[in-house]
């Protein structure tokens, strides 16, 4: 299931914790990176590798928002719609993402290119509206620059 590098990485992680259960969180990250999301198979692979019960692995994984429980697009848009961003038009951007790319909040574009997660303030209120695409930060968004930015993510 896991590729060689991941297995090595997991073994390495494993040595940093007193028991395999404690290593669950970082190993779930490795799984998410490798499989894109935590599918039942991914949970099972983690459980097998760490010899923890698979229900326990899934219980832990579903507790945290950072672990994805469904397939994700190639790129993850995390757009803020909290107060400042909302006042400055974030909701229109949500509509735009829907009409232009077919992405619903919490969903994925039909071509599998983008996933959209709505955030509650990412600390950029002064330069709202703001978003993250994968690990990159963008501010002062409007439809035009949003389209431009997303164009870089194929």
């Amino acid at each position: 299931m896991f590729n060689e590098t991941s297995i090595k990485e997991i073994e390495e992680i494993r040595t940093k914790y007193p028991n395999s259960r404690a290593a669950l969180l970082p190993v779930l990250y490795v799984a998410q990176r490798e499989f894109g999301w935590l599918s039942p198979e991914a949970y099972e692979a983690v459980a097998d590798l760490l010899n923890v019960p698979k229900a326990t692995a899934r219980g832990v994984g579903t507790f945290y928002a950072m672990y994805k429980q469904k397939p994700m697009g190639r790129h993850l848009i995390q757009l803020c719609t909290n107060v400042s961003c909302m006042i400055l038009g974030a909701e229109k951007l949500v509509d735009f993402l829907k009409s232009k790319y077919g992405i619903e909040p919490g969903g994925m574009s039909p071509d599998g290119r983008f996933s959209l997660v709505i955030m509650e303030c990412i600390g950029a209120c002064g330069t709202a509206p703001a978003m993250l695409v994968n690990d990159n930060f963008y501010e002062n968004l409007d439809k035009k620059n949003l389209e431009e930015i997303l164009g870089k993510y194929q």
Binding site: P53, A55, T56, R58, G59, V60, T62, F63
Partner: peptide, 10 residues
């Protein structure tokens, strides 16, 4: 000792 169930989501 079966650990077959867990709390899911939060």
């Amino acid at each position: 000792g079966a650990s077959a169930i867990a709390v899911i989501d939060r």
